[in-house]
Write a protein that binds this DNA or RNA. Structure first.
Lengths: 211, 211
DNA sequence: TCCTTCTTTTCGGTGAACCGAAAAATTAGT
DNA sequence: ACTAATTTTTCGGTTCACCGAAAAGAAGGA
């Protein structure tokens, strides 16, 4: 019924709306999957026919309830596998992705549950991203993008995108970690432990705080 | 370069010559893989073109040195994964096969080595079958098929085929296990712990003893 | 040997997932 | 509002691994 390719599409679409509200366009999807736009058009039509996605010609793509449920299951696999590789096999965060990308399509539900159990049924992966439940439910905490947070807002750092190169290192330098409590002092300035820290100009769109 | 399908073919061909000297025919290969004969013809030609297999039209198929090396690597993956699932996730021998069948194509060399290390670099799987080394070397002990063993020959049970239905249970009943020392008393009669045990008539072709 | 039977190959065809080039639709600039 | 640039779709084509039907080859029996 499903396939590795279908899973990858759903996962990407889900991923895109996890922290942003904008729906994904075919060209974004194509570039994130590393595929030609024409391939995306074709596959999106198939997904729509299966009721996993809604899409009218030339418009953006979004998941149906069924598609979202399926996507959550795949994200769950991916994040559990990543957590497992890091915790039990000493993988670094950089190494873990490509292995998980393949294993998420190969591991049975039974083995996945064995891994989940062995890890103590974690709710978050090492990046701080939520691991959906086995039933597809996602536990989400209210959040704001740093760019959208009002001046003076304080909250825990919930997530830092790994797509902005160098950002993780910059935050590390300022000893800002996932979980740290920070306050917004300016467009790209945070107060951390009473000290003001300036971030790269790309940071506001790549850091999420609890609301 | 390789693919899951190629791996499956090589594995089957290897498997067939592991305990028997006869080379495999296209029709046997087709039935063991659950494929149409025409599919086998086609794939075998591709394998031959890649130098993994030798085959002249209407003849049997055998692995080249390169093919055998590749096959050993796949068998290694398969058997390590099976061992791991049994030891660390409580899989039964019956359950383990289909999961390993998929994972053997998905796990990276790095993760495989992590698993190997965690298991203490085992040389045999729970069935008693040898696990090839990482470099493709297979440690084999000299063996005889029970059907070929001379009367009075004594040796350890090295392997019992899981293809003869009921045989594993029959041997279990007689408390003959992989590793047990037995002596040949007749065509289908073994001496075990000083007692004579009669086996089903299918047994002599499905039990291997150390030479 | 010749004829039948069984095995293997050849041949045309399928579905999945991809591609590039060209056409169509949308969006943006002035 | 109209043209230019961009995005999306359409269309024909590819590769991989499979299939069934029919032809070709090998093997066995009288």
């Amino acid at each position: 019924m499903s396939s590795a390719a279908v899973d990858d599409y759903l996962k990407m679409i889900y991923h895109h709306t996890e922290w942003q509200t904008e729906r994904i366009t075919p060209s974004q999807l194509a570039s994130e999957l590393g595929l030609a736009p024409s391939s995306v058009t074709e596959m999106v039509r198939k997904l729509a026919a299966q009721g996993l996605v809604t899409h009218r010609p030339y418009g953006p793509i979004s998941l149906t309830a069924a598609g979202e449920h399926r996507a959550a299951a795949i994200i769950r696999r991916h994040r559990l596998i990543e957590t497992w590789l890091v915790r039990e096999f000493g993988y670094t965060w950089a190494d873990v992705h490509e292995e998980a990308e393949i294993l998420e399509h190969a591991i049975s539900d039974r083995l996945l549950d064995g891994i989940d159990e062995r890890l103590g049924r974690p709710r978050f992966d090492p990046h701080g991203d939520a691991i959906p439940d086995a039933d597809g439910t996602v536990t989400r905490e209210p959040f704001v993008l740093l760019a959208d947070a009002p001046l003076g807002h304080c909250g825990r750092v919930l997530r830092v995108s790994d797509r902005v190169p160098g950002l993780l290192e910059a935050l590390d330098e300022a000893s800002v970690d996932v979980g740290s409590v920070v306050c917004v002092r300016g467009p790209a300035v945070l107060e951390v432990d009473g000290q003001d820290v300036s971030l790269p100009t790309t940071a506001p769109d790549a850091v999420w705080l609890s609301a």
